[in-house]
Design a protein around this nucleic acid. Sequence first.
DNA 1: CTAGGGTTAG
Length: 524
Amino acid sequence: MERNLNELVLETLRKRSELKQLKQLQGYLTTLGHAHTHFYAFKLIRFCVLTLSNLSYARLIFDHLPSPNTHLFTAIITAYAAHPATHPSALSLFRHMLRSQPPRPNHFIFPHVLKSSHHSFSVQSLHAQIVKSGFHHFPVVQTALVHSYSKLLGGMDNAKKVFDEMSHRNVVSFTAMVSGFARVGDVETAVRVFNEMPERDVPSWNALISGCTQNGAFTQGIELFRKMVWECNRPNGVTVVCALSACGHTGMLQLGRWIHGYVYKNLFVFDSFVSNALVDMYGKCGSLGKAREVFEMNPEKGLTSWNSMINCFALHGQSDSAIAIFEQMVEGRDGVRPDEVTFIGLLNACTHGGLVEKGYSYFEMMVREYGIEPQIEHYGCLIDLLGRAGRFDEAMDVVKGMSMKPDEVVWGSLLNGCKVHGRTDLAEFAAKKLVEINPHNGGYGIMLASVYGELGKWDEVKNVWRTLKQQKSYKVPGCSWIEVDDQVHQFYSLDKSNTKTEELYGVLESIVGFRNEVMVELYP
DNA sequence: CTAGGGTTAG
């Protein structure tokens, strides 16, 4: 009888996949007096979570059990820990478990509960609980602790403490340390830990490479990617996404293309992350057509897919295409709801296309229709838009109406507009603000001095230059780069040290018919 | 039933 019932339950759960059948089975078990049998309850709960994705019904079954065991607690807590939205439930159920002992937690449960903890007090109290229950010698638990601490702000000291006390450090705990150091921007230490690792696998490489790209060390990220391939580690989707991001930021189209080929040949799942990263890479490297091609091929266009495509068009000043993509995005069969990034791209596109009214109306739409609180980035775009169009009264109204302190981009955009339209009075105001916000940026001082020059305020010009010299403030030189034959050539404004500079000036001269060094900065 | 890695933004 028992054996037959087991088979019946397993068979039903394997074949059916609806709540109705589950409830029938539940009723049948109740009539047999097995409603509270742990084995069946566990099977039903797992089925609810895994097949039906119905967490609340799983919890309902659980709540009716008079004395759930550790397994059953773990099943529900694992399910809660799988999604950030239900992390609080995982923690509160765990606290309930501690109060209602028995059952006692086992070591399997701690990684899940730790994963659900995002505050230092809960991680620390869990740590205490782990030590108290004697599970602090399990490598899995130690690793989870290292990871949890490393994700907390200022948690690296604790992470390191746990890590150093581990008797058997494995790849996973090393990787958690690498990503922890990378997260706080300490790429150097991340690299050191990585080099000390006794063995490395794909996720370890990914932790380091993503650490580089997230801290703006794109060239270093690329070098590591090359080394990884060289050492016969096969990059996966995650690696490729990071590497493509680095390609986009450095304009390495050749490598980007190579990666595209690698993806095509080696990665079975063409996931949306990879597709979006390809779109972004092609867009940033100037291959707009290729970007679009990849975008269209993506069968599951998500928010980021649309955003990336819009940004590509905005970057290239193709405002009409950017707007068309946006309209497709919101109107499509299963319309995607735009977010704040979408509108940054859209506003940018309008700015580069000179579409003032349209840009303004998109800003309004963002606030009114989508209830998105404008960020400083949006204000930056809007001021840029209005400034370029010479609509300074409105621009100043926007600045005054901002809920936050205007930043360098806001004043910089305004100053830019002023220069174009000869509004020297307002330019002085904006330049002063810039110097005030960031006195160490020599570029702002130079701009202020030039505005004073235009106004004929020669004493002020002298003052600004004196301050600049005293502070030893320097302007960061304008820089651009171009890739030729898989090699990136970098040019700084008025810098002659690049070996190709002479050649370049020659070509330039033959095109424009005269030698103009400023052109080097504009059209390398 | 366990632990590490991901794209877009002025």
